[in-house]
Design a protein around this nucleic acid. Sequence first.
DNA 1: TTGAAAGCGCTAACAA
DNA 2: TTGTTAGCGCTTTCAA
Lengths: 333, 333
Amino acid sequence: MSARADRPGSGPATIIDVAEAAGVSRQTVTRAMNDMPGIKEATKERVLAAAKELAYRPSRFGRGLVGHTQRTVGLVVDDLMNPYYPQLASAVVSSARDRGWNVVLAQTAKAADQYTLIADLAKQADVVVGYPALTDNQAQEVLAGVPFVRIDMGEYTYGGGIQMDVGDAMGAMADHLLERGSRRPVLLDVGLPGFPSARGKSFLAAMSARGVQVPTVSAATKSLSSGVAGANALLEAHPDVDAIMTFNDIVACGALKALHEAGVDVPGQVRLAGCDGLNLGRFVSPELTTLAVDMGAVAEAAVGMALAMYAGEVPLQGARTQVAHHLLVRAST
Amino acid sequence: MSARADRPGSGPATIIDVAEAAGVSRQTVTRAMNDMPGIKEATKERVLAAAKELAYRPSRFGRGLVGHTQRTVGLVVDDLMNPYYPQLASAVVSSARDRGWNVVLAQTAKAADQYTLIADLAKQADVVVGYPALTDNQAQEVLAGVPFVRIDMGEYTYGGGIQMDVGDAMGAMADHLLERGSRRPVLLDVGLPGFPSARGKSFLAAMSARGVQVPTVSAATKSLSSGVAGANALLEAHPDVDAIMTFNDIVACGALKALHEAGVDVPGQVRLAGCDGLNLGRFVSPELTTLAVDMGAVAEAAVGMALAMYAGEVPLQGARTQVAHHLLVRAST
DNA sequence: TTGAAAGCGCTAACAA
DNA sequence: TTGTTAGCGCTTTCAA
């Protein structure tokens, strides 16, 4: 018993019900519903009235079946509560909309079974884009045949990918910190001590190339609280630190809190920089210097690539696009 | 020419192509693809191989047409770059997923034509939930017949609604500020001077009921930069202020930046509070005291209501659910 | 201006 | 275990 069925017991109204109610053929109903030419105004109104009366809604399945025109991209993010993903999602939704595609959203962090989650998504979408927490093999299994673009590809290889290489910008960051007078910078990385992240390595290399050996402290995870803890550990291990490069903006925010609470002035005593270019960095005081990536460009590249794969203009394997970070100097350095 | 069509010129493979390639009937293909019983293992493997070979993907339209089982909720937000919406979206996606529904996302802020945007969304979704920037009349036109739940309904009336009433919590906030010793609180509202927001009024009333007359300063918009500017204006007009209640957490972050830059200690000299309970409030120093809403509860209520409307268990008009704010004391007060 | 016929891709029900 | 029939709701021919 659906409220949408004004003909109890028979489910939602179909085009046939409307046709009967209005005393016309189904084609005439189609003409009326879709503002097509070749229908008398009076007829049209009668049909529309009948449709309204019956609470008729054209089935998107019926429509999709005949006119191959309803395309959707599946977007996989880890967790929208992490400020990184909304920025991506916002850009992806815009890019997709510009091209007439819809976006269905899947969030892996809160899902019991990621595998199933993404398998389901692949059934609803024509292409999949984003950050599935799946190995290449898993992705291949689940997505078999669905054009797939991984964002921030790293070491993955399956499908297409957007590569966000931070290397050049890291050099600019190193120059910037040194120019501002830093002599004892420390890296606040994430992960296990002794296993630096790609970003971390990149910073160490950039500094090393400039003749500065940088010690590393590792925060446990990429979270705010880890940033706080990590920065406190860092202050203890390196009390004379004069600049901190962090794994990302979130960790940087944590570090900023720790510094604030420790009474350390930023950037006066310690310069602090993040990575990602999150809008979040503008909400804190002082605003965060960061290595920013143009999310609009990332989304455009990802959606564009996925759609090209869908259209057969680009192979399902091997496509790569680089998007570079750039130094965004704000008040914290 | 699609990469997915291994039979050039004829579009993507269909179930019939697979059936022919494997030398079986379509029904057998269905059995193989859907892990249905009653099919010999060898046959199944042969079919699956053919499917893989042809890059066959079952059409979701064909499927949706026959098994009435693919439901999606359309979620309308203003702008995911505004930290409020991701929090809602995250919860809505989770709630929907728990019930086996998909979520398609529409963002009004960046859309040229909101009316069309939402009309399109309504065609892709079975129910619509969120914050469409449409009047009741517009919403009725565009959504005619689609179950619709507006979140934070305010003065709107069309469809179902979640009402987020801040009244009680505002009393708790007033008590809290007074207990902490504030004697000269000021309201940092948004909008035109002389036209206080509902929240603003609520705070003024709560304070008035406690014998304190609170002056108001208005920030132009609900943005971070407006918060900065508003707080600066406030400091000028009320140099002896000892507590600031802001319209929301974003404005509060702006105010916090202004106070920080003016060298005013928070909460030592001025206590500062926001509204909404955004996660953002935990990223700044000191963490923001706020009137929080449980977004999980809001999403559950909204999705639950929309689905009930869809199922005909609740009328399309008039359903209302209240979700209360609560005082969340953190470090800024 | 309207209607009839055909078919989009799939699965449920039944028959073999 | 497999195949056949029927039909989901819609739009695009084509004919009237």
